[in-house]
Each structure stands twice: as structure tokens, then as C-alpha cells.
């Protein structure tokens, strides 16, 4: 947090580019991440994982620079002492107890053995695995394994933690619990987070800021509040006179679209609700339903592309 207060961004990239042979995974990305929870949003293959691995120093940038807390992690591995990472895929050993594994991981991150054991126990309690910590990880359920994965990213008390798709493979209940853990990590523990997801819902409910990334480039970024506001779409279902309604909406500068049986309108401000009301009155259409449809990731992409 001190680093952030001093004005240096926690994570920064300039012209960051990564090619795998001929495939371009990331192209000329500039980003700055300050404290709080930042969401990296994008479909699979957008370059989220690649970006994270570049910031962790697992990969060498093809061009440009990735800096974390003022250091280049690929060249200076010591900065990783204050970084945590939760990969998307499986990353846990079979024949170790959670407690043993966390203590080991804390030590590999530089924490002396006696402190490592206490921190391992504390961390497992924080993620709700107190009872099971002396069982082999092999016997854990998917949800429990996901918690151990989070715990190992936090056990050495990092300044910043990178979570790659932390909700992948979880059922709705497990997903909500994981997101709650992420929120608490950011808000209560005061650990800065970069979280990647392909689900708007995940990012919206946990993050302060969102960076939308697709095809290896940033296509949008901003505070989550302006995002959700911007992406609020309204569905209007009418029994008749739909064409008239469309014209009336267009007259008021509202760019309506037809989606299935509904007319879809994208709202920029609350004032525009009045405009919808006026348009409905003018078109004399029989209204069946007028409902907000929460922003979905696909909307953002459609908007950006169009």
C-alpha cells in the first residue's frame, strides 16, 4: 500500500507485447494498476493469463516492459516475495497436507520456518479450511482445493496478488463463496488484487476497476461504477406498434436495437428513462414489460466492436 501511496503504480506496462511464434498474445498494452481490486475481463484467449504471467516474470516480454512495484520481475525475481499468484489450472500436490503445503510455500517465499507454520494455520482458517488442514490435499473437493490455491497465494502476505480465473470450475454456491473470499482479501486484509475472469458478474461484484481486454489489446477500462452504469441496458417488450416505438426512440437519440422479441436500449444516464417513457407515450404502444437487463460481458464486446 505504501508503494501506491508514494505514487508509483503497483503494476504498470508500457507497450507490453508478447508473441508465441506467430501468434500474438498481447499487443502494445499500456496499463496502470493502483491499489484496490482490479478486474481483468475478457473472453478465453484474450490474453489475460499471458498478461498475468508477464507481470509475474514467468514470461519474457517480446517488446515493451512489465513492471511490478517499480521492478521488472523477469529480471529481478526478488520482487516476487511480495507477489502472490493463483493459477487457473490445478497446482496442488497430492500427498501433502494443506498445512504442510502452505507452510512450505510460505518458506519458499522467504518467510522463516517458525513464522511460516503460524501463517499457514492462520491462512487456512481465513479461507475456512481449519478442520481439514491435516488431511492430504488429494482427498479435497474442488471447492476446497480452490481455497487452498487462494491460501497459498496469500500465505506470505503479498502486497499484490494475481488471481487467474478464481471461480473456474466452481458451482454457483462455491463461486459466490470464492468471490466473497476475494472481496474480504481486498477489503479486510488490505491486499491488492488483480483478478481475471470471463464473467462480467464476477468482476462487477468484486472489483473497483475493470480492464476489458480482447484479442491481446485493452479495449476499455474504468471504474466499475461507471461500467455498470454504462452497460445498463433496458428491455422493452410491446404488444404492438414496435416500428413506431423504434422511430420515437431514435428521435430522442437512443439508438434502439431489436433483440428477439424485445427492443433493447442502452442507457447512459437515468434521464434517458424519461425519454423512453415519452417515446412510449408518443408511439402509443401497449407496454408489456420494461425491465433493466444487467450488463453482460457480451454487451460490452458488442458495443466496443460496433
Amino acid at each position: 500500500m505504501n508503494e501506491a501511496a508514494a505514487g508509483t503504480p503497483l503494476i504498470e506496462s508500457q507497450g507490453l507485447t508478447k508473441h508465441y511464434g506467430k501468434t500474438i498474445a498481447l499487443h502494445d498494452v499500456d496499463m496502470q494498476v493502483r491499489d484496490g481490486i482490479t478486474g481483468l475481463l475478457g473472453p478465453n484467449g484474450a490474453g489475460k493469463s499471458t498478461a498475468m504471467k508477464l507481470f509475474l516474470g514467468l514470461l519474457q516480454p517480446t517488446a515493451g516492459a512489465a513492471t511490478v512495484m517499480g521492478e521488472k520481475p523477469y529480471e529481478n525475481v526478488a520482487v516476487r516475495m511480495r507477489l502472490g499468484y493463483m493459477p487457473e489450472h490445478d497446482c496442488l500436490p497430492d500427498f501433502m497436507t494443506a498445512s504442510e503445503f502452505l507452510s512450505h510455500m510460505a518458506q519458499v517465499s522467504g518467510i522463516p520456518a517458525k513464522h511460516a507454520r503460524t501463517r499457514a494455520a492462520d491462512m487456512l482458517r481465513h479461507v475456512g479450511l481449519d478442520e481439514e488442514r491435516y488431511r492430504h490435499i488429494k482427498e479435497y473437493s474442488t471447492g476446497m482445493k480452490q481455497r487452498v490455491k487462494l491460501a497459498q497465494a496469500l500465505v506470505h502476505d503479498p502486497v499484490m496478488v494475481l488471481l487467474d480465473e478464481p471461480t473456474a470450475g466452481l458451482d454457483p454456491g462455491g463461486r459466490e463463496e470464492m468471490l466473497e473470499l476475494v472481496r474480504r482479501t481486498g477489503r479486510e486484509f488490505g491486499i491488492n488484487i488483480m483478478l481475471s475472469s470471463h464473467l462480467m458478474g464476477d468482476v462487477e461484484s468484486t472489483c473497483d476497476r475493470i480492464i476489458v481486454i480482447e484479442g491481446g489489446a485493452i479495449i476499455e477500462q474504468g471504474d466499475v461504477s461507471e461500467f455498470t452504469q454504462e452497460t445498463e441496458t433496458f428491455l422493452i417488450d410491446v404488444d404492438d406498434r414496435r416500428e413506431e416505438l423504434m422511430t420515437a426512440l431514435e428521435l430522442r437519440g437512443l439508438k434502439p436495437k431489436i433483440s428477439g422479441a424485445s427492443v433493447v436500449v442502452l442507457l447512459r444516464s437515468d434521464d434517458q428513462l424519461d425519454a423512453i417513457r415519452n417515446a412510449l407515450v408518443e408511439a402509443q404502444a401497449r407496454l408489456r414489460r420494461l425491465a433493466p437487463s444487467r450488463g453482460e460481458l457480451s454487451d460490452i464486446f458488442r458495443r466496443s466492436a460496433g
Binding site: L56, H89, D90, C91, M105, V108
Partner: peptide, 11 residues
Amino acid sequence: NGVTTLYLVRP
């Protein structure tokens, strides 16, 4: 098991 990744992101 993918543990190698966890080691390689450490210092």
C-alpha cells in the same frame, strides 16, 4: 500437478 508453476512464481 502443476506445482512447478507455483515454485517458479516465487522468488
